[in-house]
Write a protein that binds this DNA or RNA. Sequence first.
RNA 1: GCGGGGAUGGCCCAGUGGUACGGCGGCAGCCUGCUAAGCUGUUUCUCGAAAUGAGAGCAUGGGUUCAAAUCCCAUUCCCCGCGCCA
Length: 444
Amino acid sequence: MIDIKLLRADSKKFYDSCKARGFDTEILDKFFMLDSKWKQNLRTLNDYKHEKNTMSLEISTMVKTGNTEISKLKDKVKDINDKIAIIEEEQKRIEIQRSETVHLIPNLLADDVPVCSGDDNSKIVKYCGHARVFTEDENYFKQNSMNSTDYDVMHVRPVDHQTIMEKYDLADLQRAGKIAGSRFYFLKNRLFKLELALINYAVDFLSQRNFTVMEPPFMINYTSMSGATDIETFKDALYKIEGDDLYLIATAEHPLASMLAGEILEEGELPLRLSGVSPCFRREAGAHGKDTKGIFRVHQFNKIEQFIYCKPEDSWDYFKELVSNAEDIYKSLDLPYRIVNICSGDLGSLAAKKYDIEVWYPSQGKFREVVSASNDTDYQARSLNIKYRTPDGNKFVHTLNSTAIATERVLVAIMENYQQENGIKVPDVLVPYTGFSQITTEVK
RNA sequence: GCGGGGAUGGCCCAGUGGUACGGCGGCAGCCUGCUAAGCUGUUUCUCGAAAUGAGAGCAUGGGUUCAAAUCCCAUUCCCCGCGCCA
C-alpha cells in the first residue's frame, strides 16, 4: 500500500503514476473525498471523547470524596456516548471505504520505467546466449534480440515439448486431467529427476550467494495474503481452502514477505536474503486457450524464489543483484535469454519497476517469461508493517522479489533448446545433480 | 481433539474496575581531563504548522459500566500434559 501522508503532500506524483499505468485516476479523487470526511469526523470524535474523559475523571474524584450527586453527570456522559457511537459507526464505514480505495492505488513508478502499454512496448535491455532459430522465425528473433547474430539457423522446426514428453515417456497429462483437470500433470522418469536436479542446483546456487534457503508454508491466511499481494485483483487467481481461512500460495514470495509482518528489524540484520522453494498454485482464470498444451502454463508448478528485505537507499542495488543472480543461472544453463524492462501499463501495482527474463523457445519461435524480478520499494512492507530501527525512528524496509527457477518452464526450455535427434542433452551444470547426461528412449 | 497455564510498549516484568509501575536496552542532553558510573528527558500509532494539544493503544473481536489491562462471551497464537498420527 502507498504512503497516505505522501499522497496528501504530493498528489501530483500519484496522478502521474496512475495515468502512466493506465489506471483510472478517479480512485485518487475518491480517496481525497473520503479522507477529508474522515479527518473531519476524527476531530469531532476526539472532541467528544475528550469531554467524556474529563467527566469520567470528575466522577472518579467525586466517588473518592464521597460526593453522591453523580447521576446527572452519568447521564451527560451517556448522552455523549450515544453521539460518539453514531459518529464512530459512520467513521468505520468511511475507514473501510478509504482503506479499500487506498489499496487500489498502485505504487509510484521508478523513473526509468518505459511509459506505454502492451508487451511489445516493453524495452529490451539485453540479449545473451546462443540460440537455435527456425528459418521462418529469423526476422522475429533478430528484432527481439537487439539484432543478435549469435544463433544457428534450423531448417526444420524444432519439436515442441509435449511431443518430446510423449516420445520419451516423461509425463502423463491425460491421467492428470482425469483426476484433477486440465493444466495438471504427472512428471515421470528422467524429466522428474531433472526437476529435482534443477531444485537442488538452485538451492546450492543461492546458498552460495548468501541466501537462507527454506521451505515455506504452502498455505497462508487471508490477512497474510492480502498483505503480501494485491488480493482484490488476484482473488480469482488464488485457490481458497474451503472451511478454513487459508489460501494456497501462488509463489513463495507470499510467505517470505508476510513472515516478518508486524516486526521491527535491526539495521544490522539487513539486507536479509531469503530463498523459498515451494509449489505454486494458480487458477489461471482468464488464460483460457493460452498455452493449453504441455506443462508451460499449469495450475501447479515448483519454483525457487529469491526475496530480499533491505534499507530503502539500497534497494536499487539489490534489484540489480537479484537480476544478475537470475541471469547467471540462465547463463550457466546455457539457455538464450533476453531481459525486458516491463512498461508501465503491464506492471503489477506493487512493483515500482520490473525486469523479466525471457528465454528463447525454438519450437514456439518466441521469447517467453521465465523470471520476473520486482522492486516493490516500501509498498509491500507498508501493507505488512515491516520496519527497521534507525536513529531517526522506525522506517519501512524495502522488499524485492525475483524468480530463480520456475522449474516447469525451465524444463520446457531445456527440452526445446537441448533436443537432439534421439534424446535430450542434460545441461552440463546439472549432470552432477542428475547423474545422467542424456534423456533417451532407452533408459527410464 | 481433551485438560491446565499464558499473551502488557524494542525486550523483561508489575498491575482484582478509577485512566499503564518498575527495570533493561536504544537515542538526546547534563556532569566529568577521558572512560565508566551518575543525573535528566525520550522511546508506539493517529489528527494537528505546532503546543508545556487531543485521541487511540495492554493478543483479536464483541459485551457490561460514567469508567475495563482488570469483569463476561467468542476467537487466534504460544507453552505443558494426554490422545491421535506420516
